[in-house]
């Protein structure tokens, strides 16, 4: 594994000049993942913040071959690219000769948990050799903070607004990492960019594996979380310290919790720093909801700890 100094010296394959917001969690995730293999990379991206902000004609932030085709099909698109690679490689028809290429698909939680879920499931089941990276910022941020199945319960979004009768998103979030792991893929993990060492290690591992692999990476969105750009790294750290976003991996079916906070940060301490939860801090009803959320987080964390080291 490379040191931070060595990583910094590596060529940036996702360059500055893109139009992602100040404080957006996506660029550090993409930059680090693209630096996590010595092989060449070809990437696809679902429609969303990353795609729109990195490819406005005639500019491109991508120094690796990159394509976008639609919202719900990053995994299907890369299936086609990767299959073409295998066929052309066998016939010695690759442009510029035979080279080892790794395939990476990026999508937000909208393009991955929701509209792109079927295509992702299909590509995982077919066993294509690719890494799928979900940057999960917990809502459809590109179109203006609409709820996704990854949005936190009782969070405010523009389609689950904190109203007088319904105080935000009613449902708990979908556990996509476990659902992906249920496809019996060789590797699936959750990571956070604040812990670059953990994320880099996981990306290296995933990119070295032959078969479908998956990284679910929490990504701060100052616009949708109603937070300050300079605090993004702290916010994803708190996501991990509260055990809302545990760092764990499932490798060949064995679950391993990668980080166990010594003192679990109370969920309310993190939520109160974010505008999307401010309505929960106004009255007793909100306080009761925070207690329920804490109980659910605790329960899920305990369930994960119970599975630590187990073969699923």
């Amino acid at each position: 594994m490379a040191t931070l100094k060595e990583l910094a010296a590596k060529e940036e394959l996702f360059t500055g000049g893109h139009r992602l917001c100040a404080g957006c969690g996506i660029p550090p995730i993409v930059r680090l993942i693209l630096k996590s293999t010595d092989a060449r990379i070809v990437a696809t991206t679902a429609t969303g913040c990353l795609e729109v902000a990195s490819s406005i004609y005639p500019y491109s932030a991508w120094k690796v071959p990159w394509m976008h085709s639609a919202f719900e099909n990053a995994a299907a698109t890369i299936s086609g690219v990767q299959t073409a690679y295998e066929v052309l490689k066998k016939q010695d028809r690759l442009p510029g000769g035979d080279k080892e290429i790794k395939f990476v698909a990026f999508g937000g939680d909208g393009g991955t948990y929701d509209i792109g879920f079927q295509a992702l499931s299909g590509a995982l089941e077919r066993g294509h050799n690719f890494l799928y990276v979900c940057y999960d910022n917990g809502a459809y941020m590109n179109t203006g903070i609409q709820r996704s199945s990854a949005s936190p319960q009782w969070g405010n979004t523009t389609t689950s607004p904190a109203g007088a009768v319904i105080p935000g998103k009613v449902q708990w979030r979908k556990d996509l990492t476990r659902i992906v792991a249920a496809h019996n893929v060789p590797y699936a993990a959750q990571a956070s960019p604040h812990n670059w060492r953990d994320l880099h290690k996981k990306a290296e591992k995933a990119l070295a594996i032959n078969g479908p692999t998956f990284l679910n990476v929490v990504s701060a969105c100052p616009l949708g979380w109603y937070t300050k750009g300079q605090d993004s790294d702290a916010h994803v750290k708190y996501a991990v310290e509260t055990c809302y976003w545990p760092l764990y991996e499932i490798e060949e079916g064995v679950l391993k919790v990668n980080y166990k906070p010594k003192n679990k940060m109370p969920i309310a301490d993190w939520f109160k720093m974010q505008g999307r939860f401010k309505h929960l801090f106004k009255d007793d009803e909100g306080a009761a909801k925070l207690v329920q959320i804490q109980e659910r987080v605790d329960m899920e964390w305990q369930r994960l700890l119970d599975l630590d080291g187990m073969r699923l």
């Binding site: 299907a76 066929v87 299909g122």
Partner: peptide
């Protein structure tokens, strides 16, 4: 390379990926 996809949307998406890759 036959990709037996899970929908026609993915069938055309895979063809688009493959054709973009020069296949």
């Amino acid at each position: 390379g036959l990709i037996t996809v899970e929908s026609e949307h993915s069938a055309m998406s895979a063809c688009i990926g493959a054709a973009s890759a020069g296949a």
